[in-house]
Each structure stands twice: as structure tokens, then as C-alpha cells.
């Protein structure tokens, strides 16, 4: 009984440590990436709105060549903008078109974030469940909250 119990506990723990936790870490990393995208697009929207508000048609900017070396660049016509639509494609938009695209893109990103949040929550729930199972096998009292140290 004891041996089989120990074995089971070990199996569960291994499942938590080798499967669930890496999954969780991965999911969180993915969600962070999407968050970053969200930020990129919200920045872009703000910038375009700024251009629109100030009706800027040409601008000068500094281009990063890498290793924090900058060079001046000028844009003669800002009304046409090329926006990354994914998979390496860039589409030429006018400002209003770009803003429209960004809105749609942001909605999609929001949905993605929600998905990932769901996924993360479910992984956490699974971890908790397995740990509860281990607790039951060890016959520890419930208030001694073992899973506390995990997250």
C-alpha cells in the first residue's frame, strides 16, 4: 500500500513538474508575446492619430542601424504607410485604412489574449487538482495548503 502510494505520488509530482509547469511557462510566454504585439499596434495607432491631428505630410526621423547607431532619414510623404499584416507581408495603407486595419487587428489580439488567459487558468487549475490529489494520498489536512509555493 505504502509503496504503491509513494509511486503514485511520485508519478503525479512528475506530471506536475515535467508536463504542467513547462506548459504553463510556455503559455505565459506566448501570452506575453501577444501582449507585446498589442502594445506595438496601440503605439502605431497613437502615432498615426498624432500625424493625422497635426496633419504632418513629411517628417524627419532617426533610423537605428543597429548597435544604437543612428542616422537621419526623411520621409517626403507620410500619407502612405506600409503596415505589417503578418507572415512578412506589408500592405500600403492610407491613414484611415491603417487605422481601420489596426482596430481589427487589436480585436483579434484581444481575443488571442483571452484564449491564452483561459489556457493558463486551466493549466493552473490542473496543477492545483493534481496537488490536491497528492495531498489526499498523503492524507494531509486540507487547510495545510501545499500548492501555495507553486504560484
Amino acid at each position: 500500500m505504502d509503496d504503491s502510494c509513494q509511486e503514485k505520488i511520485q508519478k503525479y509530482e512528475e506530471f506536475v513538474d515535467r508536463r504542467l509547469k513547462p506548459d504553463l511557462v510556455r503559455a505565459i510566454a506566448e501570452r506575453d508575446k501577444v501582449f507585446e504585439q498589442q502594445k506595438v499596434f496601440s503605439d502605431l495607432r497613437r502615432n498615426i492619430e498624432n500625424l493625422e491631428k497635426n496633419s504632418v505630410t513629411s517628417l524627419k526621423t532617426m533610423v537605428n542601424l543597429g548597435s544604437e547607431v543612428y542616422l537621419q532619414a526623411e520621409v517626403p510623404d507620410t500619407r502612405r504607410i506600409f503596415v505589417d499584416i503578418g507572415l512578412g507581408f506589408h500592405v500600403e495603407f492610407t491613414w484611415s485604412e491603417a487605422l481601420n486595419f489596426i482596430t481589427q487587428r487589436e480585436e483579434k489580439i484581444k481575443r488571442q489574449i483571452e484564449e491564452y488567459t483561459q489556457l493558463i487558468a486551466s493549466i493552473k487549475a490542473q496543477i492545483k487538482l493534481v496537488l490536491e490529489g497528492i495531498r489526499e494520498l498523503l492524507e494531509l489536512p486540507a487547510e495545510k495548503s501545499l500548492p501555495q509555493h507553486i504560484f
Binding site: V40, F41, D43, L44, N47, K60, T61, M62, V63, L65, V69, Y70, L71, Q72, A73, E74, V75, P76, D77, T78, R80, I81, F82, V83, D84, H90, A98
Partner: peptide
């Protein structure tokens, strides 16, 4: 222009680096 957008333009003052 940001991380997701570009403008067609050109580099000027090509001997002045920051």
C-alpha cells in the same frame, strides 16, 4: 515607423552618425 509599420523614405546626411 514603430515596429509594425514603414514609410518609404530615404537616408540623408549620410556622414553624420549618432
Amino acid at each position: 515607423f514603430g515596429k509594425a509599420a514603414f514609410f518609404p523614405g530615404r537616408l540623408i546626411h549620410t556622414n553624420e552618425f549618432l
